[in-house]
């Protein structure tokens, strides 16, 4: 059903996840092709003190370049940018990264909503956002913005999520482009056009 829409180029892929999303990421990353033609941004809830743990873990599972995002850095194709612990991450019009230490959103910093919302307007129909497992409702408002600006919304099938609440809330409140089982995610990403 999605074939026609998916031929739209992908300018950026943003993946948001919370509790239970690490397993999915560790399944996705080793299976990604080397010549991904768009930047991948990860916004994952975690403790402020575990700063480089996620970055190190993913680095060991992929040949793609993985780094914690630096402020003012430009998104570039084939690279993975991880929102730093304890900062919100926003995307500017020129596709550079802004970090923000403002109030938590949905008890979270980084908040998935904040990144989804700022990127929605920048990339419009070229944005693909995936929301994974989690136990709060972060990401839902962001996905609404993505929809409003014509981007694609992909939600992990809550039945395959360790913590189904977050994807469930998204499915209830946002019209998704696709609902995917966790083991179909890598294949979907590999087929997106850069």
């Amino acid at each position: 059903m999605a074939e026609t829409v998916d031929s739209t180029p992908c300018g950026a892929l943003i993946i948001g996840g919370s509790a239970g999303s690490l397993d999915v990421l560790l399944e996705i990353f080793p299976a990604l092709r080397k010549d991904i033609g768009f930047p991948i941004v990860l916004v994952v809830h975690r403790k402020a003190s575990n700063e480089s743990l996620l970055t190190d873990l993913l680095k060991s599972r992929t040949t793609l370049e993985v780094s914690e995002a630096e402020e003012k850095e430009f998104l570039s194709p084939g690279k993975v940018f991880i929102a730093p612990a304890d900062y919100h991450m926003l995307i500017e019009e020129d596709q550079s990264i802004s970090l923000d230490y403002s109030e938590k959103v949905n008890y979270s910093r980084p908040s998935i909503d904040v990144t989804f919302q700022s990127a929605a307007e920048v990339f419009r129909e070229k944005l693909v956002c995936i929301l994974l497992s989690g136990s709060n409702a972060d990401g839902v408002e962001g996905l609404k913005s993505v929809n409003n600006f014509g981007g694609r919304v992909v939600i992990q099938n809550p039945n395959t999520a360790i913590m189904p609440y977050m994807p469930q809330q998204a499915v209830l409140n946002v019209e998704p482009h696709l609902i995917l089982d966790s083991h179909d995610m890598a294949d979907y990403i590999n087929k997106l056009n850069g």
Partner: peptide
């Protein structure tokens, strides 16, 4: 100021 942040505020 960084545009995305100030716009969000």
């Amino acid at each position: 100021y960084s545009h995305a942040s100030i716009k969000r505020r």
